[in-house]
Design a protein around this nucleic acid. Structure first.
Lengths: 227, 227
DNA sequence: GTGTCAATGATTTTCGAAAATCCGTGCCAT
DNA sequence: ATGGCACGGATTTTCGAAAATCATTGACAC
């Protein structure tokens, strides 16, 4: 499918995507130390591009670097989960407000299309094949991206996407805890409806509730795990 | 002053700081292409650590990467200036509000100390030696950092610092336009007073005005330049 | 005169090995 | 017994050169 060397793209870029993928889907777990020998085996390339990929990932907060002790996957913590949630409320909330204020017909079309695709995939459960679950993750991200895509601020958009990616690491940890997100579908539909109705305040409130709900579920999961 | 090799630190880290410094103080100008040969001369090291530094800078938006065409300094534009300003209002405003809500006596002390140091340096002008101007820049950054340092959100703090760094590139371009920022000192004092008085709403409003004022001045400068 | 294509030069990108650094282990002195 | 210290192994970090890629120039056909 992908040619051996999709010309115009660099090896370091591929290493970045591959390692980030491994982190986000849990193949590399939080706190794990990342040896270059393993990473070279995973990426099938020399150390230089891998190092460049890790530098980028570190700048984005997915990995941490101890000088002369190498890289490791950024650890997860309750305090960071709370921090991410608070920042998502702030940034994605504002981005959604702006999108509703500024979005045109094209934006509405993108939103409806993304929701349609999301609704057609069964809700994520632990017993579903990972291929389908990955598909749901991708469409889920696309839906949230569509929601805020008309905000008109590239910087804000970038911040939101970064936060979404970080939140995804927590989401994935608790994916084995099924049933807890029973109403995600309904919440997504409600978000779309409020956005299309141009109800900015209502949509932002719903988004806050959506994020707080997922955060609470995750927090309960973590508490149960530590006890 | 700095030892030849401050052990415990990596060469790539030094390259990062050096190149970032060159970008922020204008030695490398927006849009400039960055050849590795030049950068190696500037940093006195091989290509590998320089490349890692550029990868980090690219992830933070200070440089851009065209695949197989190398790195260049991220260009400046009015639209990005407006975008940065809007995001600073949102993020630093919230961070300031939180700091005022949560800050303790230690925070107040840091704030007063930072303002004292800032006020003791003469206002930036085009005829001042660059050493002093650099000093003012550093203390200016320290003051704004102190303002929001008690917000309790590492992620928000990181976002704010990144935005501040980007805004600094625009600030520096217009530093030759002296006299325009005549009331920066007064505004800083007002910010501190409002923060110490725990007037959250007032302080956030003052911060917004502060940023909008600098943005307007810069925009006028850019307009005059293009005409 | 214009457009296409191949060779050339400059530059980035990647490799594989050398140098530097850190952690753990075992020995020795107190 | 305990604390300090040097040594060995594993790993990161850096180097210098080779391979790959892109822009430019010039020639040639139409």
């Amino acid at each position: 499918m992908a040619a051996d060397r999709p010309t115009g793209k660099t090896l370091a870029g591929e290493a970045y995507e591959r390692i980030r993928g491994a982190i986000q889907d849990g193949r590399l777990r939080p706190g794990d130390r990342m040896r270059f020998s393993d990473l070279q085996a995973l990426c099938t390339m020399s150390v230089t591009p891998v190092r460049e990929a890790l530098a980028r990932l570190t700048a984005e907060g997915f990995t941490v670097l101890d000088d002369h002790r190498g890289f490791s996957v950024a650890p997860l913590s309750l305090s960071e989960l709370r921090d991410i949630t608070a920042n998502r409320k702030l940034c994605e909330g504002e981005a959604l407000r702006l999108s509703i204020e500024r979005g045109d017909g094209q934006w509405e079309a993108r939103l409806v299309a993304a929701h349609h695709l999301l609704a057609r995939v069964p809700q994520g459960r632990d017993d579903m094949p990972s291929v389908i679950r990955d598909d749901w993750d991708e469409r889920h991200a696309a839906f949230h991206r569509a929601l805020i895509s008309a905000c008109g601020s590239p910087i804000l958009l970038d911040t939101c996407l970064r936060l979404f990616g970080h939140a995804g690491r927590y989401r994935r940890v608790s994916v084995s805890l099924s049933g807890r997100r029973r109403d995600a579908d309904a919440e997504h539909r409600q978000l779309m409806d409020l956005a299309l109705a141009r109800d900015g305040a209502g949509a932002v409130a719903a988004l806050h509730a959506h994020y707080q709900g997922t955060a609470d579920a995750l927090e309960a999961f973590f508490d149960g795990r530590n006890a």
